[in-house]
Computed example of a mutant assay.
Amino acid sequence: MSEDKSSSALVLFSGGQDSTTCLAWALDRFAKVETIGFAYGQRHAIELDQRQILRAALLKNFPAWAEKLGEDHLLSLDVLAAISQSALTSEMAIAMDADGLPNTFVPGRNLIFLTFAGAVAYRRGLKHIIGGMCETDFSGYPDCRDDTIKAMQLALNLGMDRRFILDTPLMWLDKADTWRLADTLGGQKLTDLIIEETHTCYLGERGSRHAWGYGCGTCPACDLRAKGYAAWRGEPV
């Protein structure tokens, strides 16, 4: 009997909190799930090391998901760092640019990620492409907006003559809701894993352990994660 490709998914998996929650979401819903990550010269490249730690922990601690988790794909896109000057790809202070966007914005990053993910999904016969983009708690990145993702779905389907579905389960959730979703999906085992092993800090800092996980504690990504954790736990923000 042929495989039902409508029950297959490719998750954009960076090793961060959001993408790990999205991976759990996919494993809870689809029969076959693969992951894809990108090395693009990011300052916080330590997240790439965490990816395999997280995948191994999911295989070990969640037997029902283990049988669904398939191949991982890691693509090199160093050209992104070469053509963009951002605080995520170079040693510069995080600040707001004159156009109102934070200088952590890497122009075209999610558009490129989704294009390459579409190419891999095409080759692997996967239907759903899942990303952690969010328009509720975000830094103003235009490539995280719902309209952008809908446009990319249309472009991929027209350009590859497929009917991919781009799922963004976090699009309308704030960070507290993201913690809540992880707890609903995998309970304390999953939230503890997110605290201990995911990486969110823009500066690549894993020396300081906080209640919500590891990070510098001051960059925008750490601040958002900390406030979301406190709100989820019912603590003062």
Rank of each mutant, 00 (worst) to 15 (best):
M1V: 11
M1S: 15
E3I: 14
E3N: 11
S7I: 12
A9W: 11
L12F: 11
S14W: 07
G15A: 03
G15V: 05
G16E: 04
D18E: 09
T20R: 01
T21F: 04
C22W: 01
L23V: 01
W25Y: 13
A26L: 04
L27K: 09
D28G: 12
F30G: 00
K32G: 01
V33F: 04
E34I: 13
E34P: 01
T35C: 12
G37S: 15
Q42W: 01
H44R: 08
A45V: 05
I46S: 04
E47D: 07
L48H: 08
D49N: 11
D49A: 13
Q50T: 11
L54R: 01
A56Q: 14
A56P: 14
L59I: 04
L59D: 08
N61A: 12
F62H: 06
W65Y: 10
K68M: 05
D78F: 00
D78S: 13
L80M: 15
A81Y: 00
A87M: 08
L88F: 12
S90E: 15
E91S: 13
E91T: 06
E91R: 05
I94F: 00
A95E: 11
D97H: 00
A98F: 00
A98R: 10
D99T: 06
G100S: 10
G100D: 04
L101R: 15
L101E: 05
T104Y: 12
V106N: 05
P107I: 00
N110G: 01
F113H: 08
T115F: 03
F116E: 09
G118K: 12
G118I: 13
A121L: 12
G125F: 02
L126Y: 02
G132A: 14
E135P: 08
D137E: 14
Y141P: 00
D146V: 01
I149G: 05
A155V: 02
N157I: 02
D161Y: 11
R162I: 09
I165D: 14
I165Y: 05
I165R: 13
L166R: 09
L166Y: 06
P169G: 03
P169N: 01
L170Q: 04
L170G: 02
M171V: 04
T178F: 00
T178E: 13
L181T: 02
L181A: 05
A182Y: 03
A182K: 03
L185E: 11
G187D: 05
K189G: 07
L190P: 01
D192T: 12
L193C: 03
I195H: 02
I195L: 01
E196Q: 15
E196S: 13
T198A: 03
H199D: 04
T200Q: 04
C201E: 01
C201H: 05
C201V: 07
G204H: 05
E205A: 13
H210I: 05
W212E: 09
G213D: 07
G213M: 06
Y214F: 14
Y214D: 08
C216N: 11
C216T: 14
T218W: 09
P220F: 03
P220Y: 01
D223G: 07
R225Y: 09
A226N: 09
G228Q: 12
G228E: 09
Y229S: 08
A231Q: 13
G234C: 14
P236F: 00
P236K: 08
P236D: 07
V237G: 08
V237I: 15
